[in-house]
């Protein structure tokens, strides 16, 4: 199978859907003439023109709101945030307008739109460019939240997100755009809300999503050398969460470690922990462990990045801990 970059997979998804439906447009900072801050939208201005690939001033609140209004009136906007860190100045439109409009209007105005861009840390970017917002958005009914971890999922899920008639938050990573992976030439879609077992195992279940899942993969490789057989689930979507796939795995392994790049209080790990104790209490042979970021803003120095992020060692230690090793 051919191998393409994560950013190319996203671009193909948008290109294919935009060729199919003239109501879809892409709006954001540097998406057109600059070809995308991270080159996701490279070449799209040439193909679709400036009516459909729209550069904006630096005004996230304004252009997010304009996109929501356009969706109310029948268009299907894709809003690119250069990073979700900048979505905070637009969050009123995402939460109060996009997420609530359908119910508030008694089912009259649905919101067929996607907000996409990178989330979480990406190296030494300092505190204001390093936050994960998956659990923030996932907390809000009315939204769907998708967090792919590889090019294949990115393309299939983005195509589905664009076709979805509800607002979808689609979260990427600056550190994944260059990742390469197998992506078929022929069209495919991946449903929102379905997790996937990426690695079969019998001893411990690890649940993760987004770029940090690579830490889980690396830990699993190391653990395999020690004879520990880890199962890894990629959630792919954090609203809705595919609890069934998690529960099924936990019933098999009886042990769970959750790896999530997020501050610990009230994050996705917390939610999964609650649901597993509720639905599979009798199957658990050890307390669930979560591996999250430090409960601090992320400082600049490389030592801070190392101290902040979930590490392979932390994941390995956690797996061994739930096995009482």
């Amino acid at each position: 199978m051919r191998v393409i970059q994560f950013r190319e997979a996203l671009r193909e998804a948008m290109n294919e859907e935009m060729r199919r439906d003239k109501d879809i447009f892409l709006i954001g900072e540097e998406v057109a003439e600059y070809n995308g801050a991270y080159k996701v939208s490279q070449g799209m201005l040439d193909e679709f023109g400036d009516k459909r690939i729209i550069d904006t001033p630096i005004a996230e609140l304004g252009f997010a709101g304009i996109a929501v209004g356009a969706a109310m009136n029948g268009l299907r906007p894709i809003v690119e945030f250069m990073t979700f860190n900048f979505s905070l100045v637009a969050i009123d439109q995402v939460i109060n307008s996009a997420a609530k409009m359908y119910q508030m209007s008694g089912g009259q105005f649905n919101m067929p739109m996607v907000f996409r861009g990178p989330t979480a840390s990406a190296g030494q970017l300092g505190a204001q460019h390093s936050q994960a917002f998956e659990n923030w958005y996932a907390n809000c009914p009315g939204l769907k939240v998708v967090v792919p971890s590889n090019p294949y999922d990115a393309k299939g899920l983005l195509k589905t997100a664009i076709r979805d008639n509800d607002p979808v938050i689609f979260m990427e990573s600056e550190q994944m755009y260059g990742d390469k992976g197998e992506v078929p030439e022929e069209e495919y879609l991946i449903p929102i809300g379905k997790a996937v077992v990426k690695r079969e195992g019998t001893d411990v279940t690890i649940v993760s999503f987004g770029k940090i899942i690579k830490v889980a993969y690396a830990a699993a490789e190391e653990l395999a050398k020690e004879g520990i057989n880890v199962e890894i689930i990629d959630l792919r979507t954090v609203r809705p969460i595919d609890y069934d796939t998690i529960i099924e795995s936990v019933k098999k392994t009886n042990r769970l470690v959750i790896v999530e790049e997020a501050w610990p209080l009230a994050n996705i790990s917390t939610e999964i922990t609650y649901m597993v104790q509720k639905r599979a209490f009798d199957y658990l042979d050890a307390p669930i462990i979560r591996v999250n970021t430090a409960d601090t803003p992320l400082g600049y120095a490389p030592t801070f990045v190392e101290a902040f992020l979930p590490s392979v060692k932390q994941v390995m230690d956690s797996v061994k801990s739930v096995m009482y090793k």
Binding site: F63, G65, V68, G69, A70, N73, G74, N96
Partner: peptide, 16 residues
């Protein structure tokens, strides 16, 4: 909050 929404509603009519 409705101010950008109003611009967006009109944007959609212009787009079409």
């Amino acid at each position: 909050g409705q101010i950008p929404l109003g611009a967006g509603i009109a944007f959609a009519d212009m787009y079409r």
